[in-house]
Design a binder for these strands. Structure first.
Length: 533
RNA sequence: GCGGGUGUAGCUCAGUGGUAGAGCGUCACGUUGCCAACGUGAAUGUCGUGGGUUCAAGUCCCAUCACCCGCUCCA
């Protein structure tokens, strides 16, 4: 499949730039890390992805409604949802080996680390001389040097051995809390510094702490806080879902892999509300349905997979989560990247917005309280329960959340469509599903004379009313087919000499090159039929 | 944030301190008449950006930005 030189992803990136699918943001100023633009073909493709999703998930169903909420919401939304706490992780870097750690991961990792295990043995041998630290220094410079190369420089840098290290050497519980030495090399760590994963802004002209606000890191919370509004303003009944497509923002530490991890990205999210007794069934339903959606749009091979999360991988509130993953060409062989997560979230979200921020304790969700016994983050206090008229029962609905990345999906469709077939006169082509193709058809006069343009142009003008189409009379016919192959246009209609005699045109199929003749009056009908195959 | 690599035309890339190049693509004209044909011609460059060294910098040095790879992170 791949070209002899360079890897496939480079070819895809080059084609996307060359043909106007994806550009780097602010390119003429040198670009900006983690932001991307969609060009004329890209915007059509991505819009087709979103429209296909909206059509199939909302319009084609009677248990779904849509929503479009603001990107900036009340700051309390993010405090209650847990994003405020989780998104401002404290991070530490090792001054010796430069590794980056989440502060709350350092202790546990240290307790398990090889050098620290050896160090514990050393401390045990020196029970009698707790006052002296020399044995630690000696160990760091000699026997311990292989396991903990950073320890000796760290001691030199700090000027002494931190007593807590020796204490921790005697007590594993203390070790799990010690965030001073690097689990990897024994080096000294920087003080914990906050990494703000949410974009901050201010409402109003004055930038003060009181009016600090956040760009949403997910669209889901907008759905939860509008749950009651939707119930009250529509006649929809449980089980039902609310869908939303929109931009979200995360200050990723390392934007990487083309558009896969961007700081500004678009989500297609569903929150499906149901009775707790039926949530397991609905979870499986949505997991399978979403997997099928990708398959039907062309991600059909072994590069797409469904991966059920392990128990220890689940968020504290989730009773089940599956990722729909794609083997992107920029990943290592055998690695997959997430396109969509389908999560069983129980009643976590609606309860949070009623009661306040929740945490898991002994397998139960309880209010997160501070040292003073008061809630850490207060909820809205509004009643978000649902009364089921048929069951005569009031309850907090459970939620199934299929959360898809529009940009990731679009990128996967691009990667999957990219095909190199050396047996063709123009080897590079994009095999987009007809529903997703940015240009649905092209109309050509075989030659730009002899009255052929006069026949072809009206056909084109007619098609253009219903679909994005192109007319091309320049260059040789082969070159025009090749140009359309590269854009992923599924059908080309060509007017030739015979058209003048019997009124037929040729239809050329992008994937096979196969041609057939149809009457020029049936072009629109033919295209309509084949686009929705 | 750390380490390594890369950055020259729309794309892919050559380029030895001394005049900015090629292939492909694009455009025009001619020719051809169903799969990137051919001929002639044309347009397109702050050599990523900013400093420095030098008589002279795409080339050497420093900084910076972006992309790729590895580490880290990925709620």
């Amino acid at each position: 499949m791949s070209q002899p030189s360079g890897n496939v992803m480079d070819k895809i990136v080059a084609l996307c730039k060359r043909r106007g699918f994806i550009f780097q943001s602010s390119e003429i100023y040198g670009g900006i890390n983690g932001f991307w633009d969609y060009g004329p073909l890209g915007v059509e493709l991505k819009r087709n992805v979103k429209n296909a999703w909206w059509n199939d998930m909302v319009h084609a169903r009677d248990d779904m409604v849509g929503l479009d909420c603001s990107i900036i919401m009340h700051p309390q939304v993010w405090k209650v949802s847990g994003h405020f706490d989780l998104f401002s992780d404290m991070m530490q870097t090792c001054r010796q080996c430069k590794k980056l750690y989440r502060a709350d991961h350092v202790g546990p990792e240290l307790a398990e680390s090889k050098w620290f295990q050896a160090f514990r043995g050393l401390v045990a041998e020196h029970q009698e001389q707790p006052a002296s630290q020399d044995f630690v220094e000696q160990w760091a410079e000699r026997k311990g040097k292989k396991l903990a190369p950073g320890l000796a420089p760290a001691i030199k840098a700090i000027g002494r051995v931190d007593e807590r290290l020796i204490e921790a050497g005697r007590n594993q519980t203390l070790a799990a809390k010690l965030a001073v030495y690097c689990p990897n090399c024994g080096g000294d760590l920087t003080d914990p510094r906050p990494f703000n994963l949410m974009f901050e802004t201010h409402t109003g002209a004055l930038q003060e702490d009181e009016n600090k606000a956040f760009l949403r890191p997910e669209t889901a919370q907008g759905i939860f806080v509008n749950f009651k509004n939707v119930c009250d303003s529509t006649r929809i009944k449980l089980p039902f879902g609310i869908a939303q497509v929109g931009k979200s923002f995360r200050n990723e530490i390392t934007p990487r892999n083309y558009t896969f991890r961007s700081r500004e990205f678009e989500q297609m999210e569903i929150e499906f509300f149901c009775h707790p007794s039926e949530s397991g069934r609905w979870y499986e339903y949505w997991r399978d349905l979403r997997m099928r959606w990708y398959t039907e749009l062309g991600l059909a091979g072994s590069r797409l997979r469904l991966r059920e999360h392990d128990k220890d991988e689940l968020s504290h509130y989730s009773c089940g989560t599956s990722d729909i993953e794609y083997a992107f060409p920029f990943l290592a062989e055998g690695d997959f990247g997430e396109l969509e997560g389908v999560a069983h979230r129980g009643d976590f979200d609606l309860r949070s917005h009623m009661e306040g921020k929740l945490v898991a304790k002994d397998g139960q969700l309880v209010l997160d309280v501070g040292p003073d016994g008061k809630p850490k983050w207060k909820g809205s206090g509004k009643d978000l329960t649902y009364f089921d008229d048929e069951r005569k029962e009031r309850f907090v609905p459970h939620v199934i959340e299929p959360s898809a990345g529009a940009d990731r999906g679009t990128l996967a469709f691009i990667c999957e469509a990219y095909t190199v077939d050396e047996s063709r006169p123009s080897p590079e082509l994009m095999k987009f599903h007809p529903r997703l193709a940015p240009i649905k058809a092209a109309v050509f006069p075989l030659v730009n004379k002899d009255g052929l343009p006069e026949i072809a142009e009206p056909i084109y003008r007619d098609l253009r009313k219903r679909w994005p189409c192109q007319y091309d009379a320049k260059a040789s016919i082969g070159k025009r087919y090749a140009r359309m192959d590269e854009a992923g246009t599924p059908y080309c209609f060509t007017v030739d000499g015979q058209t003048k005699e019997d009124g037929t045109v040729t239809v050329r199929d992008r994937d096979t090159g196969h041609q057939e003749r149809i009457d020029k009056s049936r072009v629109a009908e033919y295209l309509g039929r084949h686009l929705h195959r």
